[in-house]
Amino acid sequence: DTLHVTQDGKHIELRGLSEEEIKLVEELLRRGRKVEEALKIIEELRK
Rank of each mutant, 00 (worst) to 15 (best):
D1P: 15
D1M: 09
T2Q: 08
T2D: 08
T2P: 08
T2R: 07
T2A: 05
L3Y: 02
L3H: 10
L3C: 11
L3I: 13
L3T: 08
H4L: 11
H4Y: 02
H4W: 08
H4C: 06
H4E: 10
H4A: 07
H4F: 03
V5H: 05
V5Q: 05
V5G: 06
V5M: 05
V5I: 10
T6P: 06
T6Q: 12
T6V: 14
T6H: 13
T6C: 10
T6S: 09
Q7S: 10
Q7I: 13
Q7P: 05
Q7W: 01
Q7Y: 01
Q7T: 08
Q7V: 12
Q7C: 05
Q7L: 05
Q7E: 15
Q7F: 01
D8W: 00
D8A: 04
D8H: 02
D8F: 01
D8K: 01
D8I: 03
G9H: 06
G9V: 02
G9R: 01
G9K: 02
G9A: 02
G9M: 02
G9L: 03
G9D: 08
K10A: 12
K10H: 12
K10D: 11
K10R: 06
K10V: 15
K10N: 11
K10L: 14
H11V: 15
H11E: 14
H11M: 07
H11D: 14
H11P: 10
I12S: 03
I12R: 03
I12T: 04
I12N: 06
I12P: 06
E13R: 03
E13M: 08
E13T: 09
E13P: 03
E13A: 08
E13S: 08
E13Q: 09
L14R: 02
L14G: 04
L14H: 03
L14D: 04
L14P: 02
L14Q: 03
L14A: 04
L14T: 05
L14V: 12
R15I: 12
R15E: 10
R15K: 14
R15M: 11
G16T: 04
L17K: 00
L17E: 00
L17D: 00
L17V: 02
L17F: 10
S18N: 10
S18E: 05
S18H: 06
S18D: 08
S18W: 05
E19Q: 15
E19V: 14
E19L: 14
E19G: 12
E19A: 14
E19F: 13
E19T: 13
E19N: 13
E20P: 10
E20C: 08
E20I: 11
E21P: 00
E21Q: 02
E21I: 02
I22A: 12
I22L: 08
I22V: 10
I22P: 00
I22H: 06
I22K: 14
I22T: 09
K23N: 09
K23F: 10
K23I: 12
K23E: 11
K23G: 10
L24T: 09
L24Y: 09
L24D: 02
L24G: 02
L24H: 07
L24K: 06
L24R: 06
L24F: 09
V25Y: 05
V25H: 01
V25D: 00
V25L: 09
V25A: 07
V25S: 01
V25Q: 00
V25K: 00
V25C: 06
E26T: 15
E26R: 15
E26N: 14
E26I: 15
E26F: 15
E26D: 08
E26L: 15
E26G: 13
E27L: 15
E27S: 14
E27K: 14
E27M: 15
E27F: 15
L28M: 12
L28Y: 13
L28I: 07
L28H: 04
L28F: 13
L29C: 02
L29Q: 01
L29A: 01
L29H: 01
L29D: 00
L29M: 11
L29V: 05
L29F: 09
L29N: 01
L29W: 02
R30H: 06
R30E: 07
R31Q: 11
R31E: 07
R31M: 13
R31P: 01
R31N: 09
R31T: 09
R31S: 09
R31D: 04
R31L: 11
G32P: 01
G32E: 01
G32S: 02
G32V: 01
G32F: 07
G32C: 05
R33Q: 10
R33C: 06
R33L: 14
R33W: 15
R33I: 14
R33T: 14
R33A: 13
R33G: 10
K34N: 11
K34L: 13
K34Q: 08
K34V: 07
K34H: 10
K34E: 08
V35W: 05
V35S: 02
V35T: 04
V35Q: 02
V35M: 06
V35I: 11
V35F: 05
V35K: 02
V35C: 01
E36A: 12
E36C: 12
E36S: 12
E36I: 11
E36T: 10
E37W: 11
E37C: 08
E37Q: 10
E37V: 07
E37A: 09
E37T: 07
E37D: 11
E37R: 04
E37I: 08
E37P: 01
A38G: 02
A38C: 07
A38Y: 03
A38I: 15
A38K: 00
A38F: 05
A38N: 00
A38W: 02
A38M: 10
L39Y: 06
L39E: 03
L39A: 04
L39T: 04
L39R: 04
L39P: 00
L39F: 07
L39G: 01
L39W: 11
K40E: 10
K40N: 11
K40P: 02
I41P: 00
I41R: 08
I42W: 01
I42M: 05
I42Q: 00
I42K: 00
I42H: 00
I42D: 00
I42C: 01
I42S: 00
E43V: 09
E43A: 09
E44F: 14
E44Q: 11
E44W: 15
E44T: 10
E44I: 10
E44C: 08
E44A: 11
E44S: 09
E44N: 09
L45D: 04
L45I: 12
L45V: 06
L45A: 10
L45T: 07
L45Y: 11
L45F: 10
L45S: 05
L45R: 07
R46P: 01
R46H: 04
R46G: 02
R46Q: 04
R46I: 03
R46K: 05
R46C: 03
R46E: 01
R46A: 04
R46V: 03
K47L: 15
K47D: 09
K47W: 14
K47G: 12
K47N: 13
K47T: 12
